[in-house]
Design a protein around this nucleic acid. Structure first.
Length: 373
RNA sequence: GGGAGAAUGCCCGAGUGGCUAAAGGGGGCGGACUGUAAAUCCGUUGACGACGUCUACGAUGGUUCGAAACCAUCUUCUCCCA
């Protein structure tokens, strides 16, 4: 029997926010949670020890990228991603569905699956729902995703409906192909673009199939934020309360609050780690572009209110210097801080739900943080 | 002492009569970044109140309708022969 289970601890009185626990073989995940993204079995620039130290609980890996490198055989021989990267906490893998979207010019979609042209060497690969699951069985993540088509924001109704219905058929194939349901929770992915009725249809069909958790995909793909929030409003109330909801790829600070308020339990985002590498920090007082000349002689911490090891020991001036000189330590320090800051914010959000003052906390947060980035 | 060559915008470096305020790269400055094709990408980078003017390609003086480009002299630098 699977140990995977969602426990709803408390529902917010004023909003749709939920405080919960996801029980997995590798430990308990307190939700709502932010999951750092480690596409190629590494959160870029950080070690697994760093992630433990900052108290990250779940991290992501990516099926498509790990399938290309190091490849399925190595993942098998390594005994799965946990051993491979020395990380014994939960891992969630995306199926490669996002690459159907992001590698737009390098793939062809058919009912059977997706033909990718490798961005690495131009070689052709045919990814199917079955293969995506098989690969995820080899990677061995605790939570895995159905292979889906993530349609672009501009897709019209007709295309979006067909795409969503195919994603549903793929979801069934994924469930059928899954060989380790006892220790890998397979999530279905809700699609339906920017159309509320299609979102509802997607939820209905996926819940009919039945999954231990539900992801909401196809958002934050170029649409305005209010549209995304409207789609969440049209989706989460329809999802079963006893299963976790995962909003895929979303994680700007405002979206973490707004998503939580709309009943999302899990978030992941590359934004924190990517902008870190590009010289920007999220702080209590908003976005700080450490790279900018303003901070050349700023010998204060990245975020004076943060107690991460970066903020306790290093200055903006130093990190700016590292970024300007293209030293890898700069990327590492900012990545560490950005993720730490986000994880702490999520911890405070959980506490606020517990204390029945989520809306007040949100208001206080953005009063300092400023307008959402 | 003799001979050859070079001097370009913050730096390197194209450019041998008008289309050159001057390619390209670097550096500087700024912006973007949301299930990672990203330590990436984009913009900008002589001055001044704008498709206008001014100052600019070592210096000075010429040739020409017009010069960063041609000529003369000077200055500095590099290389070769003694």
């Amino acid at each position: 029997m699977s140990e995977f289970r969602y426990e709803l601890i408390k529902e917010c009185k004023d909003t749709g926010a939920r405080l919960g626990k996801i029980h997995t073989k590798r430990g308990v995940i307190n939700t709502p949670i932010f999951m750092p993204v480690g596409t190629q079995a590494t959160v870029k620039s950080l070690s697994s020890e760093d992630l433990v130290e900052m108290d990250a609980n779940v991290i992501l890996g990516n099926t498509y990228h790990l399938y290309l490198r190091p490849g399925q055989e190595i993942m098998d021989k390594a005994g799965g991603i946990h051993k491979f990267m020395n990380w014994n906490r939960p891992v969630l893998t995306d199926s490669g569905g996002f690459q159907v979207f992001s590698l737009n010019d390098l793939r062809k979609i058919t009912e059977e699956g997706v033909e990718f042209i490798s961005h690495l060497d131009g070689s052709r690969h045919f990814m199917t729902p079955e293969k995506a699951i098989d690969m995820q069985n080899s990677i061995g993540a605790d939570i895995i995703m159905c292979f889906d088509e993530c349609a672009p924001a501009g897709a019209d109704y007709e295309y979006t409906k067909k795409s969503m219905e195919m994603t549903t058929r793929w979801a069934r194939r994924c469930k059928d192909a899954h060989k380790r349901p006892e220790d890998q929770a397979l999530f279905g992915i809700v699609q339906g673009g920017m159309f509320a009725d299609l979102r509802a249809q997607s939820v209905q069909e996926l819940t009919d199939i039945g999954f231990p958790g539900y992801s909401i995909g196809g958002l934050s793909v170029g649409e305005p934020k209010d549209v995304m929030y409207r789609m969440l409003d049209a989706t989460t109330p329809l999802l079963p309360k006893d299963k976790p909801r995962y909003l895929m790829g979303v994680g700007s600070l405002d979206a973490l609050f707004e998503g939580t308020i709309r009943g999302i339990d899990m978030f992941d985002c590359v934004l924190q780690s990517r902008i870190a590498r590009n010289g920007t920090a999220f702080t209590s007082h908003g976005k700080v572009v450490v790279r900018n000349a303003t901070y050349k002689e700023d010998f204060t911490p990245v975020d004076p209110e943060c107690d991460c090891f970066v903020c306790r020991n290093y200055t903006r001036a130093y990190i700016r210097h590292l970024i300007k000189t293209n030293e890898i330590l700069g990327a590492r320090l900012l990545t560490y801080h950005n993720l730490y800051f986000t994880l702490v914010t999520m911890k405070k959000i959980r506490q606020a739900i517990m204390d029945d003052n989520l809306l007040a906390y949100k208001e206080a947060f953005f009063e300092k943080f400023g307008i959402a980035e």
